[in-house]
Design a protein around this nucleic acid. Structure first.
Lengths: 231, 231
DNA sequence: GATTAATTGTGATATATATCATGTATGTTT
DNA sequence: AAACATACATGATATATATCACAATTAATC
């Protein structure tokens, strides 16, 4: 985890989210003057459900989860964000509040960019605005697929989905460091952590997937995809 | 079900969606010149998941359901739209495809407004654009609450939710004509129609809610709310 | 109005998953 | 290194809900 963010302007930063690549040098400098970055330790709250959205958050290092909180009920893990992802929230165009919480899964570094500047850039740069709405649409469609996974599939299918999501979307490799606890996997797959343990054991026995010393590895991608599909 | 739409321009129409009230006479006339209206019988497909979004649909009469389709699995009823509601889709800013289907629950009448005109109006009328994005945000947040309902609650809670949604949001009365079949309620509440029957029977026995000759009536709002809450 | 089809209701049984209780490993603090 | 806390694993049991089979309405068609 190196330190590229610090000491660089947004224009120079190699860890800015892809959305920002549509911006001019001047616009990036404008952002640079209205941003700050912070580090978080594992488990800390980066943004709290219900609180006002005064900044857009761009993750530069680490991993974070988006969770729906409900008093007295387990959290629902909606999605995971990785570096270079901008965390947009539907509340931005609605009531200016977060409708989910963002919690770090590892030590993370994040840039907070003043919301007013973002809105101002919408007027100045149509391409930026277009891409911003694109990413909002993307997250909505992703929620539809979450709906399907959670509602239609059995536990093995849901957990296989979680593993494939991590491998394909987050770590982009069949082998990766498992930064999620069993309880995170449970929140993602809508089951208890006990059930996660049991199914993980099955996957290991069937030589589909295993975790050893925090290193996760997909051993039989085809069968795992099949379980996720038919689940 | 009267005929206000026909023979009226958009400017005169009393059934235009509230979003359009931000538009000027000229802008409404522009819409009027790029719209057509159609009627649908119960059960007909107004918009099909996967097909291109060439129009924005405004419901002027009847009721329609938004459903997530998955081959080989039961549909997931996401929401219901009623007259004066505009049907926006996250695909509009993404891949220009419907990510759910819209199916009429009753005989309906709908206005189809050319998408290009809508996009054009975004540039002309900031207030219109702003409200449009507001309604997109609203639908997203509504999905979060659907997530919670379906994931955290037991069957009685989920069905009580469905009934309260119909009463509060759709019919705006504790008594209403039940346009949904048991199977629609099942799709909304993620259970089988057999289970819907059984719980409806319980609600009737406990004098909370009953349906007689397609007329639904909430008998004990407080207890129903409590069941939906604690569910 | 009789016949057929579709929707709804009901009971018996099966099944997936949660819950609870407890054990084991792993890591952290003093 | 010992004591404690935290994460993970596993077994026995309970429970909610689906499934299946069929009965009873209600609606549609000839």
């Amino acid at each position: 985890m190196n330190d590229l963010v610090d000491g660089f302007t947004c224009a120079e930063c190699l860890k800015k989210c892809s959305l920002f690549k549509t911006l001019s040098k001047e616009q990036l400098d404008e952002i640079y003057n209205h941003r700050y970055d912070t580090t978080f330790r594992e488990g800390e709250v980066i943004a709290k459900q219900g609180s006002p959205i005064s900044n857009v958050v761009s993750l530069s290092d680490g991993l974070a989860k988006l969770v729906l909180e409900t008093p007295g009920k387990p959290d629902i893990l909606l999605s995971i964000v990785k570096p270079t992802n901008l965390i947009t929230s539907p509340g931005m165009f609605l009531d200016n509040r977060y409708h989910f919480s963002v919690i770090s899964l590892t030590d993370t570094k994040a840039c907070f960019i003043n919301m007013t500047i973002i809105r101002q850039l919408f007027g100045e740069n149509k391409e930026f605005q277009k891409r911003f709405h694109y990413s909002v649409g993307e997250r909505s469609v992703m929620l539809f697929s979450r709906f399907r996974n959670l509602i239609h599939k059995n536990m093995a299918g849901r957990l296989a989905d979680a593993i494939l999501f991590l491998s394909n979307e987050i770590y982009e490799s069949p082998e990766f460091n498992m930064d999620l606890r069993r309880s995170d996997l449970a929140e993602y797959s809508n089951m208890t952590k006990e059930s996660v343990s049991r199914i993980l054991k099955e996957f290991k026995e069937q030589k589909l997937f295993h975790i050893e010393n925090d290193t996760a590895r997909i051993l039989d991608m085809n069968r795992l995809v099949q379980i996720a599909r038919n689940g």
